[in-house]
Design a protein around this nucleic acid. Structure first.
Length: 424
RNA sequence: GUGAGUGUAGCUCAGCCGGUUAGAGCACUGGUCUGUGGAACCAGGGGUCGUGGGUUCAAGUCCCAUCACUCACCCCA
């Protein structure tokens, strides 16, 4: 028997795993939509595959994403190389440029949600196909937009009922700042290269900032001894003022946050503001989502210089956090009516009646003839408000025996009066 | 890519020191039951014991390999 690809998941009405239950999933998406739409952001959808360059241009050539091929790439009938989207941001910026959104009122604020694909080894909270809600504000370089983005993200979590959140704010500076910082780190660590872990030795060239959050005990001991200066001390005057402005707005909003001087981004296109929201108890992958500013991305995609900031939140991760906190999910409404055929001739009649009542009422029918007792059980199992029996006796009178399951009260209702009876 | 742990029915699990035709509960379908049972009882369907090889008179059980899952590392847009 064929199975789903490892690292992918079916989202089911009932699933062993809380995080893969469709009502949970839908609740998260709908809550995010409500919050984002209330700020005036507009929903869009981009294709789930793009020319690979859309995602490759911004990440940097030395990154594992390109080197180790952590993207799902395929050729379109021998034509150009395509990629299943590994992130929404680059696709959103591509769409902004392609459709001339620079003539819309700026910044253009967009949100979307859907599947994201990454060709990595899966583990808890990390899958080859997972799902994100994504928000991007494109076309403004004002720190007010960064602060609003963070506020909206936090609002989504709060609206969902999550507590135990930690907002970490940092700045990766401007590209020049980062060059200076990387040079500083290389100088600092090169003198102690022998005592670095093999992983960190490799990071010395590729991405020295990653050494700062190495989990290797030896590396951590070395870090405590060397006490490297944080990125924030290398910010130029402009990016420093920007960082402080964002903090000022967050304080005005009374959003608790901590400045994380070593917050890192793996991609080249990020500048200035970077943030992550963490949750204490969902395993090694504690980030519920993250965001940042990417003023250089549009140019890397061959477009004009367009600033932007945005965030993505992982739906499965948020679901795990909801489970940890025992947050309840609104259940799907139960049926208003369960129509049970008591003889063969009634099967068609219950179908006709059900169709007449839908969609104003949620109506289920029995698909096989059963004794009234069994039909009652079926109705109870489904949590229906009313059960309607239809057999020979009812047919002769043109009625349904309508029983209110909570009270047990029952009366005969004419076929034309059902709608009114259910509405009461 | 690396490391550790776990694989028996749709789900939760039992299966002793290797020993007959592999079990239970839940769920599903039907019967007891010709119209008011969130019921009880009975029955049924559903398994290549993850897969392949080895040891043995005999393997769900022991050995090897492999695959999958889980957790963690690497990476993380």
């Amino acid at each position: 028997m064929l199975k789903s690809v490892p690292g992918t998941n079916d989202i089911l009405p009932q699933h062993q795993e809380f995080a893969f239950r469709e009502p949970v999933f839908r609740h998260i998406v709908e809550t995010a939509q409500k919050v984002l739409a209330s700020s005036g952001a507009q929903a869009i959808h981009t294709p789930i595959f793009e020319y690979a360059e859309v995602f490759q241009k911004g990440v940097g050539l030395t990154s594992d994403i390109v080197v180790k091929k952590e993207m799902y790439l395929f050729e379109d009938r021998g034509e150009r190389l395509l990629a299943l989207r590994p992130e929404p941001t680059a696709a959103m910026v591509r769409a902004y440029n392609e459709h001339g959104m620079k003539v819309w009122p700026q910044p253009v604020r967009l949100f979307t949600w859907g599947p994201i694909f990454r060709a990595e080894r899966h583990q808890k909270g990390r899958y080859k196909q997972f799902h994100q809600v994504d928000y991007e504000a494109i076309g403004s370089a004002d720190p007010l937009v960064d602060a609003e983005s963070i506020a909206l993200m936090v609002k989504i979590y709060r609206e969902l009922g999550l507590r135990g959140l930690e907002v970490k704010l940092g700045s990766v500076g401007d590209p020049e700042d980062r060059l200076r910082y990387n040079a500083y780190l290389r100088d600092l660590f090169r003198a102690h290269a022998e005592s670095l872990s093999p992983d960190s030795k490799a990071r010395l060239e590729s991405n020295p900032m990653r050494i700062l959050d190495s989990k290797d005990p030896g590396d951590q001991a070395l870090l405590r001894r060397l006490e490297p200066k944080p990125m924030l001390e290398f910010l130029g005057p402009e990016s420093r003022a920007f960082h402080e402005a964002v903090q000022g707005y967050l304080r005005a909003l009374e959003i608790p946050f901590s400045v994380d001087p070593s917050l890192v981004r793996g991609l080249d296109y990020y500048v200035r503001t970077a943030w992550e929201v963490h949750h204490a108890r969902i395993g090694a992958k504690s980030a519920l989502g993250g965001g940042g500013r990417y003023d250089g991305l549009s140019e890397m995609l061959g477009g004009p210089r367009v600033p932007g900031v945005g965030f993505g939140l992982g739906i499965e991760r948020v679901a795990m956090a909801l489970e940890e906190e025992g947050v309840s999910i609104p259940p799907d409404p139960s049926p208003d009516l369960y129509l049970a055929p008591l003889d063969e001739a009634a099967k068609g009649e219950v179908l006709v009646l059900a169709e007449r009542l839908r969609p104003r009422f949620k109506v289920e029918i029995g698909y096989s003839v059963k004794r009234a007792g069994r039909a009652l059980e079926d109705a109870l199992k489904r949590g229906a408000r009313y059960v309607g029996f239809l057999g020979q006796a009812e047919r002769q009178k043109g009625v349904v025996a309508l029983k209110h399951l909570e009270s047990g009260g029952q009366r005969e209702v004419g076929w034309g009066a059902l709608e009114e009876a259910l509405g009461a």
